[in-house]
Amino acid sequence: MTLILFVEQCLNGVQLGLMLFLLAAGLTLVFGIMDMINLAHGSLYMIGAYLAATVIEATGSFLLGAGAAMIGTGLIGAALEVSLFRQLYRRSHLNQVLATFALILIANETVRMIWGAQPILLNMPEALAGPVEPVEGFRYPAYRLAVIAVGAAVALLLYVMVVHTRLGMRVRAGASDRDMANVMGVDTRRLFTLVFAIGAGLCALAGAMLGPILAVQVGMGENILILAFVVIVIGGIGSIRGALVGALLVGLIDTAGRAFLPGLLRHVFPPTIASEAGPALASILIYVLMASVLYFRPRGLFPARG
């Protein structure tokens, strides 16, 4: 029984971690290559989720919805990069924070004007709605397994792309030394737009897939943005590998904390205190993790810059 619970929570943790990775991958590349703090990254996730919900509603096809959301959000991301972000790369981090914070407000309010303030429902594809029973006595939602599979596949694809292709080589060159990459003939302008669009598309994928599990609502991007920042700081800014490790760490620790900490506390404290303090303390865990990682490795686990 406890073993089943443990495996189940681990799978939940991996699932959260992989989704966080989809968000963190774009964020860490934008941050690492363009030296740009993009607070509006979470807004792209929100826009992706809303686009997916709308297309799924209209066509009835989850695949079509997720695909349209990725392409649509990718285009929005590219348009934003060309029109606004280019002007911000050379500005101070403070300017970038203010500008992208303004974008969050604009995006939230625009979404509210188009789709209304109520959370909207995003149903999971019917074929995956039930549980599966891979081992006798262990039932797990099929949809969550599918999310893990897609997340793992995209992570692998991204890894191959960054480590084994010419495009990935340029991206890595940009992350470790932008000016030098420029001098060596990398067209950083086009590279930036492309990276930004891919990052936005990955956000939309995460938004579409998490939509049926979490609520699709205004402001959904902000809280997950903080988690994504935690992930990339733990992993080391600019590092895809760091983002993956950080995302899985955060996903597992957060899920395990929420599932097991209240129970553990019950052994030490009276039940009332344990049930009150447990969930809150579980939320603290990932921040304790981040603070301790930074204490011992002030540049994260896998620093991208030399």
Binding site: I226, F229, E276, A280, I284, M290, L294, R299
Partner: peptide, 20 residues
């Protein structure tokens, strides 16, 4: 940036500590 994030981490800890 790491300073930005570590101060955020501590503030979040304080936030959840108060809630608990």
């Amino acid at each position: 940036v790491y300073f930005i994030m570590i101060t955020l981490a501590f503030a979040q800890m304080a936030y959840y500590a108060i809630i608990s």
